[in-house]
């Protein structure tokens, strides 16, 4: 690119990128290795290869119930967040109105609020309207947190659309709904699918807010949090590790 290259510096930079990647991926790869290792607290040298932990998880009803909760929540959240996000993205793309900045801030801010605070606010609010401690409360909370991602993805796609397409559709006699159904949604379809998957992934992985509001209907990440807290074999006395949300009024 630029005229004066220095091989040493470039090599060092590449090495640094590699070091960063190792730093980021060592824990991820580590968890794979540890899961196949016989020791409970892995250390060097590693124990022998074992699928024992997978068998334990496979046979653990608590893990399964958590898994089903996670899947149900994830599917509902993906649909809700994508619908909401599509509406938001189209609004931002199509309309100009007073207070649009406020609208956008409201729509996009949730991911910047620390999850602990979101969790507390959700728990306090939802228990007040008697919705806490259920799967629905997790869906509501995750809907708030995931819709900005859906909106961003779909908005990005809409910005690639030729603005004349909409006008053309109107000229050809399509009303607003017909235009939406036959022009905009088909154009945004890849982004809509991407949004469905991404919001589901975000919901799958979210543990903090879910931990606050889920009560007895824990999702899988919440159970993992419990394992981490207890450092005990999966499945033993999960009730001892429940947050107060389970006992909330």
């Amino acid at each position: 690119m630029t005229g004066n290259r220095n091989i040493v510096i470039e090599a060092l930079l590449r090495l640094h990128v590699l070091a960063c990647l190792i730093f980021i991926f060592a824990p991820i790869l580590g968890s794979f290795v540890f899961s196949l290792n016989s020791d409970r607290f892995p250390s060097l040298p590693l124990g022998h290869f074992s699928l024992e932990w997978y068998r334990l998880i496979w046979e653990d009803p608590f893990v399964w119930s958590g898994f089903f909760n996670t899947v149900i929540v994830g599917l509902c959240v993906a649909v809700i967040a994508t619908l909401l996000g599509f509406g938001g993205a189209y609004t931002d793309y199509r309309y100009k109105f007073v207070g649009k900045n406020v609208y956008l801030a409201l729509a996009l801010l949730p991911p910047t609020i620390p999850v602990v605070i979101m969790g507390l606010a959700m728990l306090a609010f939802l228990s007040r309207i008697n919705l806490s401690g259920s799967t629905i409360s997790v869906i509501i909370a995750h809907g708030v947190m995931c819709s900005p991602f859906a909106m961003a993805i779909i908005r990005l796609r809409l910005s690639q659309m030729d603005p004349d397409l909409e006008a053309a559709s109107w000229n050809l006699g399509g009303n607003e709904w017909a235009t939406l159904r036959h022009v905009i949604v088909p154009f945004a379809r890849p982004a809509i699918f991407a949004a469905l998957f991404i919001t589901m992934a975000v919901s799958f992985d979210e543990f903090a807010v879910a931990w606050f509001v889920s009560g007895l209907n824990e999702t899988l990440p919440v159970k993992i949090l419990g394992f981490l807290q207890g450092q005990v074999s999966p499945g033993s006395t999960p009730s001892a590790r429940l947050p107060s949300s389970a006992r909330s009024r």
Binding site: L83, G87, A107, A124, F125, R128, A141, G143
Partner: peptide, 25 residues
């Protein structure tokens, strides 16, 4: 209107809980 669902959802389940936190304190 497509803009409304998101607005209502975020008002009811995002802004309101945060404001409720203020009251709660």
């Amino acid at each position: 209107m497509l803009s409304l669902p998101l607005l209502i959802w975020q008002l009811a389940f995002f802004l309101f809980p945060l404001l409720f936190l203020v009251a709660l304190s």
